[in-house]
Design a protein around this nucleic acid. Structure first.
Length: 539
DNA sequence: TTTAGGG
DNA sequence: CCCTAAA
């Protein structure tokens, strides 16, 4: 199942635009905007873009899955162009949302948009001339459709993105910008096979030749190519995706499916409710009776400056967890420690701790200062150590010297005092698998930031940068966590890519990032139905 | 040891 | 998380 890069998509869009208009106006609008975006990028990059992208439409079937276009802008141009691109992206998202009977939820007062725009530009004043701001403003207004229909979140994403650009510095999290638009949109027409587009993390990395190679390699690797496997694809088509998805999930979660199936369902449930274009909403035929909580960000999101979509995912995942019954602590002394915790015990302990507001407020670094990655991880690490099971304490002698940032009940000290230094226990502890210690939000955040900065494949560096003093997180753990995060985002109801359908074709805007004066856009085109050679030749 | 990937 | 091949 071939996927086509930006060149192809531009071609497709333009040709379709000329030849047929069988889809709705809204979709046309979306495509036109997207085409203009892609075309603009294409035109500007044609002179310099590497030729390893598309060379001819006859070669589509053997080309790479994804072509990443990266265009170098000079400072000023970037400021204008990026805003334009953002507007474009937003418009695509919104237009599609409109077709999903979503007008009510999408309504965000023009005046508010305007206020945000003005505020953004005002904040940019110190850094740039009025003329620059005027350019920006006109650029944004050029895409008035998008501008007018921004949601609050989208507009704020634009604001933060524009500010970052204005300050001539890389976005704290470049993905924030794109994901701000992309994340909250889902579609009942989503197809699981599209979920392989997890390369958003790659999008923010410095675009070098080596990086391209790495990206390409990754895209060809198992992570990214899961969906296009013909077999899976056929399952998708035959069973509406259920079979394939189930099998994938089963594979991914075979280890701890006793919990994760439940977690997955909960996450899915929450997701369906949070995302306003979900099946459920549409199925009800009305959005007016949607409880407010369904469209409100979890309160925990308010404590971070730039929650990445991944963070959001994890937060949603944990707060959607029911606290569950309080598990009585085991006896302080026993001859043999339990070999296994009750299923879900440790995670529930942890997550119920995380949902306790007082714990959040007592972890300053984890909430107020995300850039202090190691400290964040440390804080959560300490937090974890004081809220985890006693079985865990038995195995972790370093607990006594833990860097506590939360008040430690005196009992814990006593507990430690009575921990028997029984070699037999130690041995059995070593023999069994480690206690499962779910990653906290801060840890995930630290991991994501580190990987964004260092890239995958450098887990030792990731460990040293973000988890140096977190002894129980090995670089293998981090690698594994990243793997699960990628899988989760892939299987997790496809919340990232915004897909547009037209006829039997599927256009996916999978990423937009701006970092270090370079803009990257990733588009993919893949077939929704069986690709016919004749269709392909028409291009 | 570190990376990568299956279990 | 575990295990291990491969680098």
């Amino acid at each position: 199942m071939p996927f086509f890069g930006i060149h192809c998509s531009v071609d497709l869009l333009r040709r379709r635009d000329r030849t047929e208009r069988t889809v709705g106006d809204t979709q046309i609008c979306a495509f036109e905007l997207l085409a203009s975006l892609a075309g603009k990028l294409l035109e500007e990059s044609e002179s310099s873009a590497s030729s390893n992208a598309f060379e001819g439409r006859n070669h589509v079937s053997i080309n790479k899955d994804v072509v990443k276009q990266e265009i170098q802008y000079d400072d000023k141009l970037l400021k204008t162009e990026c805003i334009e691109h953002v507007s474009c992206v937003a418009s695509v998202v919104d237009s599609d949302g409109t077709t999903e009977n979503n007008d009510n939820l999408k309504e965000f007062k023009h005046s508010e948009n305007h206020a945000i725009l003005e505020r953004t530009l005002t904040k940019m004043q110190p850094a740039y001339s009025k003329q620059t701001n005027l350019d920006l403003k006109s650029a944004i207004r050029k895409h008035n459709v998008a501008y007018e229909s921004f949601t609050a979140r989208e507009a704020k994403g634009l604001e933060s993105g524009a500010l970052a650009i204005a300050n001539n510095c890389p976005l704290k999290d470049p993905l924030d910008l794109s994901m701000t638009f992309l994340a909250p949109v889902n579609s009942h027409r989503d197809v699981k096979l599209c979920n392989k587009l997890s390369n958003r993390f790659k999008a923010s990395r410095p675009p070098t030749h080596i990086e391209d190679q790495r990206i390409r390699k990754l895209l060809m690797s198992k992570y990214w190519k899961a969906a296009p496997k013909l077999k899976d694809f056929e399952h998708c088509r035959a069973d509406g995706g259920i079979k394939s998805l189930h099998r994938k999930r089963k594979t991914c979660y075979n280890y701890d499916n006793c919990q994760n199936d439940t977690l997955y369902k909960r996450m899915k449930f929450f997701d369906r409710n949070l995302i306003v274009t979900s099946d459920e909403v549409i199925g009800n035929g009305s959005v007016s009776n949607l409880p407010e909580k369904h469209v409100r960000c979890p309160p925990c999101l308010q404590v971070t400056k730039h929650p990445t979509s991944l963070m959001i995912l994890m937060i949603i995942w944990m707060h959607t967890l029911e606290p569950g019954p309080v598990i009585a602590p085991p006896p302080l002394c026993y001859e043999e420690p339990p070999l296994l915790l009750p299923c879900g015990a440790a995670p529930q302990n942890l997550t119920s701790s995380l949902t306790t507001p007082v714990l959040y407020t007592k972890i300053p670094d984890a909430t107020a200062d995300p850039p202090l990655l190691t400290n964040s991880a440390k804080a959560m690490d300490s937090n974890y150590k004081h809220t985890s099971s006693q079985t865990d304490m038995l195995t972790d002698q370093k607990l006594s010297e833990s860097r506590a940032l939360v008040p430690v009940p005196a009992m814990n000290v006593e507990v430690l005092a009575v921990v028997p230094t029984n070699h037999k226990i130690r041995k059995s502890e070593l023999a069994r698998r480690r206690t499962r210690r779910p990653f906290s939000v801060s840890e995930v955040e630290a991991l994501v930031r580190a990987v964004e900065e260092l890239g995958t494949g450098r887990w030792r560096d990731v460990k040293l940068q973000a988890f140096e003093n977190v002894d129980h997180r090995t670089y293998v753990d981090l690698k594994d966590k990243w793997k699960t995060l990628v899988h989760r985002s892939k299987d997790g109801e496809s919340r990232y890519p915004k897909n547009c359908w037209t006829g039997s074709w599927l256009l996916m805007l999978t990423g937009l990032s701006i970092k270090q004066n370079k803009a990257s856009i990733i588009l993919e085109v893949g077939e929704l139905q069986t690709l016919k050679l004749t269709e392909m030749e028409l291009w």
